[in-house]
Amino acid sequence: MAKTILITGASSGIGRAAAKRFEREGWNVLATMPDMQAPHGLVESDHLIIAPLDVRDVGQCSQAVATATARFGQIDALLSNAGYGQYGAFEAISSDQIQNQFAVNVFGAMNVLRAVLPGFRTRGQGLVLVTSSAGAKVGLPTSELYISSKFALEGFFESIWYELRAVGISVKLIEPGGVDSGFHKVADRLTAAGGGIEAYENLYGRIVANRDRIIASGELVSSDDVATAIFAAATDGTSRLRYLVGEDAEHLDAAVRNKPEAEVLGMIARQYGLSELAPDAPATNAPH
């Protein structure tokens, strides 16, 4: 019997690539998205259906689970992928924008998880895959809302790993670095930049120039690469929690784990053209 996965945020990028990959591998897929009218490039079939789901809407989360269950019998896995980023200085970002960032990236993931858990728990098995970010380990300039939402997401899912494992449910965090998807276009469109505050405008301009340079370097992984990593995590049969995707993700993870804090802060500052903000290296015998 084919397994079934519910995927959120499947209209583009990683979610769309994952929907196609799981279908090719013989899974049943419920591909969900908040706007059914938006172009998504998915084609419904006997094994793939598309349904509306705004993860902020608890009722729609329950309905998506009901739809998948009615069509395919049960849900075996969830890919909690819906999310977005926005750039800008904190002072320039409105309270509504802040609330929505967490409503989608964090509370939305909780809403969908709550909807699938009763079925998983009753059967004593289930798999929860979460699209996180390598950036969930370190702050990045003028990306504080997106990054903090991923910090929160990782704290929640690492904590709940224990109670879910106790009832037969696995949790896996997928942590890509830079991805060649629509993410940056959305974040650029939503940017608050420096909000007209001169000190921030100058800083933001320098950061954008270096961010664009990084994106244009061609070192980003593709959405298909991430989908491959997600499928591998879904089928490796282990209790492993985190999966890094991309050389930049691996380098960042190694730096955070092995280098003193000042070195990591300096590394990020220089990467974004802010060398003058890099802290002095700590003394050899200084604790860190």
Rank of each mutant, 00 (worst) to 15 (best):
T235L: 00
F231H: 12
A227T: 08
L129G: 02
D280T: 14
G194F: 00
F183Q: 04
Y84G: 13
S223Y: 00
Q37K: 13
R24S: 15
L129C: 10
V130W: 06
A286I: 05
A255C: 05
G41N: 02
P34S: 14
S94L: 11
S95Y: 14
V43A: 15
S11M: 06
E23P: 01
G108Y: 05
E276G: 13
V226D: 08
R21V: 11
A192S: 12
A68L: 02
E91Q: 14
G41K: 00
V167C: 11
A115E: 03
R16F: 11
D180C: 04
E25W: 07
A281D: 14
A152W: 01
L220A: 02
G168T: 09
I214E: 10
S217K: 02
T284F: 12
A18F: 08
G177S: 00
A269G: 05
A249N: 02
A166M: 09
E263F: 04
H184W: 13
N258P: 01
L241K: 04
A152M: 06
T8H: 03
D212L: 10
E23R: 11
D280W: 07
Q86H: 09
R211W: 10
I7V: 10
Q60Y: 02
D212S: 12
G85N: 12
H288T: 12
E250T: 13
R21Y: 12
A134H: 04
I214P: 01
D54F: 01
R206T: 14
A278N: 03
E219H: 08
I230C: 05
H288K: 05
D212V: 08
D57Y: 01
L127R: 02
Q86T: 13
V171C: 04
L265G: 03
P260H: 02
D180R: 06
R211K: 10
Q99V: 15
V112R: 00
R240G: 09
S159I: 07
Q37E: 15
V58Y: 07
I169T: 09
K259H: 12
P141Q: 06
A82T: 02
D188W: 07
G246P: 01
V264L: 05
S275R: 09
T67I: 13
A283W: 09
L140R: 10
N81L: 02
R123S: 09
Y84D: 14
K20N: 15
